[in-house]
């Protein structure tokens, strides 16, 4: 499974979701798979994307928000998982692209495995699951309720990436375009039923 397999599966299962992508392969892949769709692309600020997704999810409770995070990114802002566990918005799903490397800086290995799904299960306010195929990822996403008032702690999906390739265009996005496009989309899009 590569990063684009993950992003494509997310979009197939959550076509109306707003994605929050961290700098690196996540932003590159979301750009490619959604044709620069109206999502919250991080072009820097590594370690901040999960907290950004938490803020966005709470601002748009009638929309599904999926944070797509590199594992290096996740590690830099790991404390945000505890914040998600504290406030547990039911419309937030977290997908960590677990390839064990810092792809954006040349693929240097992350020195210790994250075991993020296990950590999420250890916290009272989040749930964790590990997937290693698009079939498992799709089944996991489709099994989750998506109604705005669905109960339950946010799901953290650790997606095991075995095929490490650069997914798409540059992650050095135009911040102004990101803000403009997402705001325009939020203003126009009716809330999905």
């Amino acid at each position: 499974m590569n990063v684009n397999d993950v992003t494509r599966t997310i979009m197939q299962c959550r076509p109306d979701a707003i994605l929050v992508s961290s700098l690196g392969t996540a932003t590159s892949s979301v750009r490619l798979v959604t044709s620069d769709g109206p999502h919250f692309y991080f072009g820097a600020a590594m370690g901040s994307a999960l907290a950004g997704a938490l803020g966005l999810a709470e601002a748009v409770p009638d929309r599904q928000v999926v944070a797509v995070l590199g594992d290096g990114e996740f590690l830099m802002g790991a404390s945000a998982l505890w914040s998600v566990a504290a406030y547990r918005p039911s419309n937030l799903t977290v997908v960590v692209l677990a390839d064990g490397a810092y792809s954006i800086t040349g693929g240097q290995p992350i020195p210790a495995p994250l075991h993020v799904a296990a950590v999420a299960n250890a916290l009272a306010g989040t749930r964790g699951v590990t997937v290693s195929s698009t079939t498992e990822l799709a089944a996991t996403l489709r099994a989750e309720p998506t109604s705005p008032d669905a109960p339950g702690a946010p799901l953290v999906i650790e997606a095991t990436i075995t095929e490490r390739t650069w997914p798409g265009p540059s992650p050095f996005i135009d911040p102004a375009a990101t803000v403009r496009n997402l705001r325009a989309s939020l203003a126009q899009a009716p809330a999905p039923a």
Partner: peptide, 25 residues
């Protein structure tokens, strides 16, 4: 709504997520 987050960096990023949706944090 009060959000006691773990780090100041999270607070700024949380607020960024709110502001991109034009909320007022």
């Amino acid at each position: 709504r009060l959000r006691n987050l773990a780090r100041e960096e999270e607070c700024v990023a949380y607020a960024a997520g709110q502001r991109i949706a034009e909320a007022r944090p």
